[in-house]
Design a protein around this nucleic acid. Structure first.
Lengths: 344, 344
DNA sequence: CTGAAAGCGCTTACAG
DNA sequence: CTGAAAGCGCTTACAG
């Protein structure tokens, strides 16, 4: 049950715990421990399978070698994949990760932050909810290593890693126009989340760049809190309300999934009766018939950047702020099949 | 930066740290601390926002209030959802969770186990890989609270929570026969994973119960390590090799997804040309046209049971073994559309 | 009814 | 080149 401690090694080697600690922490040279002693200790440590007690070390150094990962929903395709790579990358640096989902709920986010602080994680990866500003500010003020993921807080300069939401949505809208679609609608959520706002802005900017304007009635906002069924009904009603609608853009994958269901319920054929693009990729989009064109996020790059920025912060504690914006890619599939007709 | 400690409270209250500790740990009555002192301490604690240092407490008590969750792949729909509920449930008991993915690789699993031991997690939730027996045995021998998830090791009696794989697959096969399908094939993986074996056994048992036998050539095993493209090619070749094939069963969701791609590539129509069932549900199965009939696992129940069993172990350390087998549900969708014809 | 003291396993400033 | 000692923040057996 009991593990071997530094003391055990010291006793067997006939030296003090101090010396053992120095050697085991690679400070043998620096502390000018003789090679002979050094080797003896190292040999003993492997022989006894010595594992430093992280708790004791942490108590002493204040470091837990643990990072906290707060996402919106760990079960969501995007975040689950990020979580996987984050764990793998963190492991390479000797860190483990504690996670939690906010469900985009401010209180849950605050609770998570509190627990992680309490647990003394060394660094934070956070997908902030709306109105989390004060808490992020506090973390920043306490000089805690931290990097925001997927979105940022406009009023607080911090490290962050995210995709270029504006560009991704702009490209999607422009693509639809290039193909010759005329009546293009957009579905987003009511929430003030910055990344959603930027996606909508990108979409609208493209529309305005190539068209005389964008009528408000072509825009639908859904409540994050509504049920699946409610959302699908809302989308159906929205689609029916627009005569001659020929293309529709959804600003995130779960909305896109609702959209597919709504379109299916209405008996419309994606790609034939209506063109369809969603932000974020998903197995479903790839495999649906026809495939759903989407704005894909580089998940691996995002996760690796997040860890890189965090490790940099953890090790150097510079004051430099790293803001990484990665390009989104338009993945073209059968859901927008009209042959390029009118030029935009 | 520095948090308030028990000493700070003691000083301000004019009592000893011992007394503070007793009160804060709810032992005021037991240790017969006066109500007056007790109240003063409690008030001070909330006023100073005292947060016990888990590291120090852990060093002293040997408990970290952390559990380790080892899954096959945290990015997989099933495990991502389990991870989410596990985290929520654990949180209710004051536990946080550290996770990692094995990729069904023995070395990774061993590595994960080692790190978690090193981190002194209080309990383990493990999706074992093949050949992990010795390590699980060691954990068991060390009397570490532990519960296996999704699969078990036949030679080692331990706690586990899983779905009834045999019954789920049996039901699927029987359903196909009831609908009147004649030539039914099955696709599984080469790995020795017990849950896969049981699914195949369930399928075969149903076939044997209602038919004269099951020809070996109707069974295809794919390598877990093969690439997406390779697997899809293999499935296509397999399907083409069986004349008059009219139904196919996949033993897990990612195989089912490959299967959909393969069938699509071959220009066959699911539900029309070939009936299709997969173990495990997935967004894709629900939304595909036609919907894919599947054997659904009760993910919420599984995750809650896992935590319940683990907490029971953690708190009571009984010797009693809990083995929970939950029923799988056949979710009928359009992918098996033949009208019930021949009776089986 | 309450407190002094030891100890969990480390690290590190200080001393020689 | 090496060690004694203090201290991180708790808990708990012991004493009064």
């Amino acid at each position: 049950m009991k593990g071997v401690s530094i003391k055990d090694i010291a006793k067997q080697a006939g030296v003090s715990p101090t010396t053992v600690s120095f050697v085991l922490n690679g400070k043998a040279k620096e502390k000018r421990i003789s090679d002979q002693v050094s080797k003896k200790i190292l040999k003993l440590a492997t022989k006894l399978k010595y594992k430093p007690n992280q708790l004791a070390r942490g108590l002493r150094t204040g470091k837990t070698k643990t990072i906290g990962l707060i996402v919106e929903d760990i079960a969501n395709h995007f975040f689950a994949n990020v979580a996987k790579i984050v764990e793998e990358e963190a492991d390479k640096f000797g860190y483990k990760v504690l996670y939690g989902s906010t469900e985009d709920n401010l209180q849950k986010a605050k609770g998570l932050l509190e627990v992680l602080e309490y647990r003394q994680v060394d660094g934070y990866i956070i997908t902030p909810t709306v109105n989390l500003d004060k808490d992020i500010e506090a973390l920043k003020h306490a000089r805690k290593p931290m990097v925001l993921l997927d979105r940022y807080l406009p009023h607080i300069p911090t490290n962050y890693v995210m995709v270029n939401n504006f560009q991704g949505a702009y490209d999607a809208a422009e693509y639809l126009m290039q193909l010759g679609y005329e009546k293009i609608a957009v579905v987003t959520i009511t929430s003030e989340q910055i990344q959603m706002k930027e996606r909508l802005d990108g979409f609208l900017a493209a529309m305005k760049a190539h068209r005389s304007g964008f009528p408000r009635k072509m825009l639908k906002k859904l409540a994050f809190t509504a049920t699946r069924e409610e959302n699908i009904e809302e989308i159906k009603t929205f689609i029916k309300s627009i005569p001659n609608l020929d293309a529709i853009f959804f600003t995130t994958n779960y909305l896109g999934i609702y959209g597919i269901e709504a379109v299916k319920d209405l008996g419309l054929q994606i790609g034939e009766d209506i063109a369809f693009i969603s932000f974020d990729d998903h197995d479903l989009f790839r495999l649906y018939s026809p495939g759903i064109t989407c704005v894909s996020q580089p998940i691996g790059d995002i996760a690796r950047s997040v860890i890189q920025v965090l490790m940099n912060e953890l090790n150097n504690n510079t004051n430099q702020i790293n803001q990484v914006v990665l390009p989104a890619t338009l993945v073209k599939r059968g859901s927008c099949s009209k042959k390029a007709a009118s030029k935009i």
